[in-house]
Protein backbone atom coordinates (compact mmCIF):
# COMPACT_ATOMS: atom_id res chain seq x y z
CA UNK A 1 0.00 0.00 0.00
CA UNK A 2 2.78 2.36 0.93
CA UNK A 3 4.55 1.60 -2.34
CA UNK A 4 2.92 4.19 -4.59
CA UNK A 5 3.06 7.10 -2.14
CA UNK A 6 6.72 6.36 -1.41
CA UNK A 7 7.63 6.17 -5.08
CA UNK A 8 5.85 9.48 -5.46
CA UNK A 9 7.76 11.09 -2.58
CA UNK A 10 11.07 9.92 -4.03
CA UNK A 11 10.33 11.17 -7.54
CA UNK A 12 8.70 14.48 -6.70
CA UNK A 13 10.50 15.42 -3.49
CA UNK A 14 13.92 13.77 -3.57
CA UNK A 15 14.79 14.07 -7.26
CA UNK A 16 14.48 17.89 -7.06
CA UNK A 17 16.87 17.78 -4.08
CA UNK A 18 19.29 15.80 -6.27
CA UNK A 19 18.70 18.43 -8.93
CA UNK A 20 20.05 21.04 -6.53
CA UNK A 21 23.49 20.13 -7.87
CA UNK A 22 22.95 22.63 -10.69
CA UNK A 23 23.58 25.30 -8.06
CA UNK A 24 27.23 24.21 -8.25
CA UNK A 25 27.27 23.98 -12.05
CA UNK A 26 26.88 26.27 -15.03
CA UNK A 27 23.66 24.80 -16.31
CA UNK A 28 22.98 25.04 -19.99
CA UNK A 29 20.11 23.54 -21.91
CA UNK A 30 22.16 21.55 -24.41
CA UNK A 31 24.36 19.66 -22.00
CA UNK A 32 21.60 19.15 -19.42
CA UNK A 33 21.93 18.56 -15.74
CA UNK A 34 24.78 16.05 -15.92
CA UNK A 35 26.90 17.41 -18.76
CA UNK A 36 27.15 20.95 -17.50
CA UNK A 37 30.54 21.87 -16.00
CA UNK A 38 31.11 22.16 -12.25
CA UNK A 39 31.89 25.65 -11.00
CA UNK A 40 31.95 25.19 -7.23
CA UNK A 41 30.63 28.08 -5.17
CA UNK A 42 30.74 30.64 -7.98
CA UNK A 43 27.02 31.37 -7.92
CA UNK A 44 26.92 31.64 -4.14
CA UNK A 45 29.80 34.11 -4.14
CA UNK A 46 28.14 36.07 -6.88
CA UNK A 47 24.98 36.29 -4.77
CA UNK A 48 26.74 37.23 -1.52
CA UNK A 49 28.66 39.99 -3.25
CA UNK A 50 25.80 41.37 -5.28
CA UNK A 51 24.14 44.63 -4.29
CA UNK A 52 20.80 42.81 -4.11
CA UNK A 53 21.92 40.47 -1.33
CA UNK A 54 21.32 42.67 1.70
CA UNK A 55 18.12 44.13 0.35
CA UNK A 56 16.62 40.70 -0.37
CA UNK A 57 17.69 39.11 2.91
CA UNK A 58 16.69 42.24 4.84
CA UNK A 59 13.22 42.42 3.28
CA UNK A 60 12.63 38.69 3.70
CA UNK A 61 13.70 38.69 7.35
CA UNK A 62 11.83 41.82 8.34
CA UNK A 63 8.58 40.65 6.74
CA UNK A 64 8.70 37.21 8.32
CA UNK A 65 9.89 38.32 11.76
CA UNK A 66 7.17 40.96 11.77
CA UNK A 67 4.49 38.39 11.01
CA UNK A 68 5.87 35.69 13.31
CA UNK A 69 5.76 37.97 16.33
CA UNK A 70 2.63 39.97 15.62
CA UNK A 71 0.74 37.10 14.00
CA UNK A 72 -0.10 34.87 17.02
CA UNK A 73 -1.25 37.67 19.36
CA UNK A 74 -4.70 38.25 17.90
CA UNK A 75 -5.55 34.55 17.36
CA UNK A 76 -4.77 33.86 21.04
CA UNK A 77 -6.83 36.89 22.02
CA UNK A 78 -9.73 35.79 19.82
CA UNK A 79 -9.61 32.26 21.25
CA UNK A 80 -9.89 33.67 24.78
CA UNK A 81 -12.75 35.97 23.79
CA UNK A 82 -14.58 33.02 22.19
CA UNK A 83 -13.97 30.89 25.24
CA UNK A 84 -15.47 33.46 27.62
CA UNK A 85 -18.40 34.69 25.54
CA UNK A 86 -21.63 34.01 27.41
CA UNK A 87 -23.95 34.59 24.49
CA UNK A 88 -23.82 31.38 22.46
CA UNK A 89 -25.34 32.89 19.35
CA UNK A 90 -22.77 35.65 19.23
CA UNK A 91 -20.04 33.07 19.71
CA UNK A 92 -21.26 30.98 16.76
CA UNK A 93 -21.59 34.03 14.52
CA UNK A 94 -18.14 35.32 15.45
CA UNK A 95 -16.60 31.93 14.65
CA UNK A 96 -18.43 31.60 11.36
CA UNK A 97 -17.46 35.08 10.20
CA UNK A 98 -13.83 35.12 11.30
CA UNK A 99 -13.06 31.74 9.70
CA UNK A 100 -14.56 32.76 6.36
CA UNK A 101 -11.69 34.92 4.98
CA UNK A 102 -9.45 31.83 5.08
CA UNK A 103 -11.32 30.58 2.01
CA UNK A 104 -10.64 33.65 -0.12
CA UNK A 105 -8.00 33.02 -2.75
CA UNK A 106 -4.78 35.04 -2.83
CA UNK A 107 -5.68 36.68 -6.13
CA UNK A 108 -9.05 37.82 -4.79
CA UNK A 109 -7.53 38.88 -1.47
CA UNK A 110 -4.96 41.12 -3.16
CA UNK A 111 -7.67 42.57 -5.35
CA UNK A 112 -9.78 43.36 -2.27
CA UNK A 113 -6.73 45.07 -0.74
CA UNK A 114 -6.24 47.11 -3.91
CA UNK A 115 -9.86 48.25 -3.95
CA UNK A 116 -10.12 48.85 -0.24
CA UNK A 117 -6.98 50.98 0.07
CA UNK A 118 -7.27 52.72 -3.32
CA UNK A 119 -6.45 56.38 -3.15
CA UNK A 120 -9.55 57.96 -4.64
CA UNK A 121 -12.49 55.62 -4.04
CA UNK A 122 -11.23 53.19 -1.37
CA UNK A 123 -13.33 53.35 1.82
CA UNK A 124 -10.28 54.03 4.01
CA UNK A 125 -9.27 57.10 2.05
CA UNK A 126 -12.87 58.25 1.71
CA UNK A 127 -13.10 58.13 5.49
CA UNK A 128 -9.83 60.02 5.94
CA UNK A 129 -11.12 62.69 3.58
CA UNK A 130 -14.37 63.03 5.48
CA UNK A 131 -12.43 63.50 8.69
CA UNK A 132 -10.49 66.25 6.99
CA UNK A 133 -7.21 64.36 6.99
CA UNK A 134 -4.71 64.00 4.16
CA UNK A 135 -5.20 60.97 1.94
CA UNK A 136 -2.59 58.21 2.08
CA UNK A 137 -1.33 56.25 -0.89
CA UNK A 138 -1.09 52.88 0.84
CA UNK A 139 -0.46 50.81 -2.24
CA UNK A 140 2.64 52.46 -3.63
CA UNK A 141 4.34 53.65 -0.48
CA UNK A 142 7.26 51.29 0.19
CA UNK A 143 7.37 52.21 3.89
CA UNK A 144 3.77 51.10 4.36
CA UNK A 145 4.12 47.83 2.43
CA UNK A 146 5.22 45.64 5.38
CA UNK A 147 2.30 46.86 7.51
CA UNK A 148 -0.18 46.39 4.70
CA UNK A 149 1.14 42.88 4.00
CA UNK A 150 1.20 41.73 7.62
CA UNK A 151 -2.07 43.27 8.80
CA UNK A 152 -4.12 42.10 5.85
CA UNK A 153 -2.69 38.64 6.55
CA UNK A 154 -3.85 38.98 10.13
CA UNK A 155 -7.30 39.98 8.93
CA UNK A 156 -7.46 36.89 6.73
CA UNK A 157 -6.03 34.24 9.06
CA UNK A 158 -6.79 35.29 12.66
CA UNK A 159 -10.00 33.26 12.76
CA UNK A 160 -8.45 30.15 11.29
CA UNK A 161 -5.36 30.36 13.49
CA UNK A 162 -7.48 30.79 16.60
CA UNK A 163 -9.02 27.31 16.17
CA UNK A 164 -5.90 25.58 17.42
CA UNK A 165 -5.71 27.78 20.53
CA UNK A 166 -9.43 27.39 21.17
CA UNK A 167 -8.96 23.62 21.03
CA UNK A 168 -6.24 23.69 23.66
CA UNK A 169 -8.26 26.14 25.80
CA UNK A 170 -11.23 23.78 25.90
CA UNK A 171 -8.81 21.04 26.93
CA UNK A 172 -7.89 22.87 30.13
CA UNK A 173 -8.81 20.84 33.21
CA UNK A 174 -12.15 22.32 34.48
CA UNK A 175 -11.32 21.49 38.11
CA UNK A 176 -8.61 24.16 37.97
CA UNK A 177 -11.24 26.73 37.11
CA UNK A 178 -13.67 25.44 39.72
CA UNK A 179 -11.03 25.69 42.42
CA UNK A 180 -10.15 29.21 41.33
CA UNK A 181 -13.81 30.26 41.38
CA UNK A 182 -14.25 28.98 44.91
CA UNK A 183 -11.17 30.97 45.91
CA UNK A 184 -12.82 34.06 44.45
CA UNK A 185 -10.55 34.57 41.44
CA UNK A 186 -11.94 36.91 38.79
CA UNK A 187 -12.15 35.82 35.17
CA UNK A 188 -9.25 38.06 34.27
CA UNK A 189 -7.09 36.39 36.92
CA UNK A 190 -8.15 32.96 35.70
CA UNK A 191 -7.09 33.81 32.16
CA UNK A 192 -3.71 34.99 33.37
CA UNK A 193 -2.97 32.20 35.83
CA UNK A 194 -4.76 29.20 34.34
CA UNK A 195 -5.53 29.61 30.63
CA UNK A 196 -2.36 31.22 29.36
CA UNK A 197 0.02 28.83 31.15
CA UNK A 198 -2.01 25.85 29.88
CA UNK A 199 -1.72 26.81 26.23
CA UNK A 200 1.92 27.82 26.52
CA UNK A 201 3.25 24.64 24.90
CA UNK A 202 0.90 25.06 21.92
CA UNK A 203 2.15 28.60 21.45
CA UNK A 204 5.79 27.49 21.58
CA UNK A 205 5.32 24.63 19.10
CA UNK A 206 3.61 26.91 16.61
CA UNK A 207 6.39 29.48 17.06
CA UNK A 208 9.08 26.89 16.32
CA UNK A 209 7.25 25.81 13.18
CA UNK A 210 6.97 29.37 11.96
CA UNK A 211 10.65 30.08 12.60
CA UNK A 212 11.48 27.29 10.15
CA UNK A 213 9.85 29.29 7.41
CA UNK A 214 11.55 32.54 8.35
CA UNK A 215 13.51 32.61 5.10
CA UNK A 216 10.50 31.95 2.92
CA UNK A 217 7.66 34.41 2.85
CA UNK A 218 4.19 34.29 1.40
CA UNK A 219 5.46 34.35 -2.16
CA UNK A 220 2.07 34.26 -3.85
CA UNK A 221 0.66 37.26 -2.03
CA UNK A 222 3.81 39.38 -2.16
CA UNK A 223 4.26 38.76 -5.86
CA UNK A 224 0.75 40.02 -6.56
CA UNK A 225 1.10 43.00 -4.24
CA UNK A 226 4.32 44.18 -5.87
CA UNK A 227 4.39 47.23 -8.06
CA UNK A 228 7.27 49.32 -9.39
CA UNK A 229 6.88 51.83 -6.61
CA UNK A 230 7.04 49.51 -3.61
CA UNK A 231 9.77 47.13 -4.85
CA UNK A 232 12.30 48.65 -2.43
CA UNK A 233 10.64 46.84 0.48
CA UNK A 234 8.59 44.19 -1.31
CA UNK A 235 11.28 42.31 -3.25
CA UNK A 236 12.03 39.12 -1.30
CA UNK A 237 14.19 36.08 -2.04
CA UNK A 238 11.29 34.01 -3.38
CA UNK A 239 10.05 36.60 -5.83
CA UNK A 240 13.59 37.38 -6.98
CA UNK A 241 14.34 33.70 -7.67
CA UNK A 242 11.16 33.38 -9.69
CA UNK A 243 11.79 36.53 -11.68
CA UNK A 244 15.38 35.86 -12.72
CA UNK A 245 14.90 32.12 -13.08
CA UNK A 246 11.58 31.47 -14.75
CA UNK A 247 9.95 34.76 -15.66
CA UNK A 248 12.94 36.20 -17.54
CA UNK A 249 13.26 35.57 -21.27
CA UNK A 250 16.79 34.13 -20.92
CA UNK A 251 16.73 30.76 -19.17
CA UNK A 252 19.08 31.10 -16.24
CA UNK A 253 18.77 28.22 -13.81
CA UNK A 254 21.98 27.86 -11.82
CA UNK A 255 22.13 31.25 -10.12
CA UNK A 256 18.54 31.26 -8.80
CA UNK A 257 18.90 27.62 -7.70
CA UNK A 258 21.92 28.63 -5.64
CA UNK A 259 19.89 31.40 -3.99
CA UNK A 260 17.05 28.96 -3.29
CA UNK A 261 19.46 26.43 -1.78
CA UNK A 262 20.98 29.09 0.47
CA UNK A 263 17.46 29.93 1.63
CA UNK A 264 16.45 26.31 2.36
CA UNK A 265 19.66 25.53 4.25
CA UNK A 266 19.27 28.56 6.51
CA UNK A 267 15.62 27.61 7.12
CA UNK A 268 16.57 24.04 8.07
CA UNK A 269 19.36 25.20 10.38
CA UNK A 270 17.07 27.69 12.10
CA UNK A 271 14.36 25.16 12.82
CA UNK A 272 16.89 22.72 14.31
CA UNK A 273 18.50 25.42 16.47
CA UNK A 274 15.24 26.93 17.72
CA UNK A 275 13.92 23.47 18.51
CA UNK A 276 17.05 22.76 20.61
CA UNK A 277 16.65 26.00 22.51
CA UNK A 278 12.96 25.38 23.15
CA UNK A 279 13.77 21.87 24.36
CA UNK A 280 16.24 23.25 26.92
CA UNK A 281 14.11 26.15 28.11
CA UNK A 282 10.63 24.71 28.25
CA UNK A 283 10.87 20.99 27.51
CA UNK A 284 8.67 21.38 24.44
CA UNK A 285 9.96 19.91 21.22
CA UNK A 286 8.80 19.14 17.72
CA UNK A 287 10.36 15.68 17.73
Amino acid sequence: MLFFPTVYIIIFKYIPMYGLQIAFKDYNLFEGMFGSPWVGFKHFNQFFQSTEFWRLVGNTLSLSIYSIFVGPILPIFLAIVLNYLINNKLKKTLQMVTYAPYFISTVVMVSIINQFFAIDFGPINVMLKKMGLAQIDFLSNPDLFPHLYVWTGIWQYTGFNSIIYLASLTGVDPTLHEAAIVDGASKLKRIWHIDLPSIQSTIIILMIMSVGSIMSTGFEKIYLMQNNLNLRTSEVIDTYVYKIGLASPIANYSFPTAIGLFQSVIGLLLIVIVNKIAQKVSEVSLW
Binding site: P16, Y18, L20, I22, V241, G245, L246, T257
Partner: peptide, 19 residues
Protein backbone atom coordinates in the same frame (compact mmCIF):
# COMPACT_ATOMS: atom_id res chain seq x y z
CA UNK B 1 11.60 10.11 8.60
CA UNK B 2 12.00 10.07 4.83
CA UNK B 3 8.55 11.64 4.54
CA UNK B 4 8.96 14.19 7.33
CA UNK B 5 12.31 15.41 6.01
CA UNK B 6 10.55 16.73 2.91
CA UNK B 7 8.57 19.08 5.17
CA UNK B 8 11.77 20.64 6.43
CA UNK B 9 13.86 20.77 3.29
CA UNK B 10 13.00 20.87 -0.39
CA UNK B 11 14.66 21.18 -3.75
CA UNK B 12 13.07 24.55 -4.31
CA UNK B 13 11.47 26.26 -7.24
CA UNK B 14 13.86 25.74 -10.15
CA UNK B 15 14.71 22.03 -9.64
CA UNK B 16 11.00 21.24 -9.23
CA UNK B 17 10.22 23.15 -12.40
CA UNK B 18 12.96 21.28 -14.27
CA UNK B 19 11.56 17.96 -13.08
Amino acid sequence: KIYVFTMLFSGGLIPSYLL
